[in-house]
Write a protein that binds this DNA or RNA. Structure first.
Lengths: 261, 261
DNA sequence: ACGGTCGCCGTACAGTGTTCGCAACGCCGT
DNA sequence: ACGGCGTTGCGAACACTGTACGGCGACCGT
């Protein structure tokens, strides 16, 4: 809500709630610039998380920071740049993998799976990410993403991969992770937008789906038998993790066939 | 450009170029509704392809169809619904796989790889897809997507998969495809937005990247050695296809371990 | 003391998606 | 033949959006 309301008057702008006159108004303290890039990015992230992507406008964000909309532009070039910064901030939440003990294949596998799972969890925690991930082309040069990539590469190097090999494997895992999370989070944010509980939403939707899949027997069977289970338990998580495992199996098989074990 | 300009006057709206009076104005031909959902979707697709996502506005789209902006709303509920329709239209471009001869593992693999490759190609052909794919949650119920899913499931069923097995494998491949294409297309559309040729753009960007990766030795090496090759030949295509192959290896390995071969 | 710079913001502009009421039209029952 | 009716198109309007620009006040180096 209206955070930081306690210092509304201390920075010189009139506080409409309390009585103000030119004599009792304290001078604006400019001890520090009152607005920083970090602050903006953090507040944008909070706004996105609480109200979704279409609630993020420069004016609303400025209001949350007790600032005018155009003030943000001294710290951030664009809305696009702001979004890129926020996305990298999310990547900054992810714990970094350590290369320790990665010579053991089991340790290495567990570390990669954990990484992928963390990433997927982050996207599901911030479902607006998928509406933005296609527009922020430069994110892969952001500091947090680069830190993450670097340590993943280090991990795989200690596991015995060549650099380009490691890169390809990483791309495969990350591609799978992002793609899966996209599909899931798109569903999730459609659900959020409908405002209903997942169970209720599903119960309303299922008849229509079964009707629509009448001429597609396999999809029909799939939806009829599978979907409810997926909703009830968190079995999508397991399915995802199994998927990562399958990819790692493929990678190891390829390596074994090349005589590098 | 301005298509259909020949009948600007024949549908009764005043043509600002030619002289018009109430006496020579021909009656509006309402032989057929002049605007249809298909037409709108097709023109929206054309506009998106030629000018990108941020050029698509209801007014511009209406203008292209010699119609007012608000006329579109009789055929389409929302801009969101329009986008969902357009996305499904793109999926309609994809050739459907046939289950013929899929008992042969080689045939089956080739079909799946081809499917994934077609999908990736479609996304790269329409790079705006990635900016939209996160917002159209209901796309997976679109007719074209469903047709595609159904025939993929059929393909894998003839290859010997159980239904839920087939679904999981399909999700893995599709997830990887969408994720990879997202990453690539985001890069591509950032490039398009810059308006430069890929080579020039790269030459300008590379020094900055190498500077930025100074404290990340592995990324540094990777960019220094790898990137130019990727640009020069179309080696990203091969890399993607190899990735799909790796996933299929993993799937087959898992199945073999379960004694289904 | 005083110019220069920097951070902030009010205003303004050119758009955006969407709603609403009205008009024109084909059709259908009488 | 004719009067209502449902459908389709559209102009105006509303509430918002991102952002360029110019000004204003406070700070800092000299």
């Amino acid at each position: 809500m209206a955070a930081r309301s306690e210092d509304t008057s201390s920075d010189g702008r009139p506080d409409p709630a309390g009585f103000q006159s030119p004599w009792n108004r304290p001078p604006r303290r400019r001890d520090q610039p009152a607005l920083s890039r970090e602050q903006i990015v953090t507040e944008a992230l909070a706004l996105l998380d609480s109200d979704g992507i279409e609630a993020l406008s420069m004016r609303k964000l400025g209001a949350r920071l007790n600032a005018g909309a155009t003030s943000l532009y001294t710290h951030v070039a664009n809305k696009d740049e702001l979004l890129a910064l926020v996305v990298d901030q999310v990547f900054g939440e992810l714990p970094m993998p350590t290369a320790e003990g990665a010579e053991d294949p089991a340790v290495w596998r567990a570390a990669v799976v954990g990484c992928a799972d963390n990433m997927r969890a982050a996207i599901m925690r911030h479902p607006w990410m998928v509406s933005v991930i296609g527009d922020v082309g430069m994110v892969y040069l952001g500091p947090n993403w680069m830190r993450l990539s670097e340590s993943l590469l280090a991990l795989m190097e200690t596991a015995g991969f060549e650099l380009v090999e490691a890169n390809e494997a990483m791309s495969a895992v990350m591609g799978y992770t992002i793609g899966t999370a996209c599909v899931e989070a798109a569903w999730l944010s459609a659900l959020t937008k409908s405002g209903q509980d997942e169970r209720v939403w599903m119960e309303q939707l299922l008849p229509a789906v079964l009707e629509a899949t009448k001429s597609h027997p396999r999809l029909h069977r799939l939806y009829a038998t599978q979907v409810q289970q997926e909703v009830n338990e968190g079995s999508r998580d397991n399915s995802f993790i199994r998927g990562v495992g399958v990819i790692l199996d493929g990678i190891e098989a390829t390596r074994a066939a090349q005589g590098k074990g």
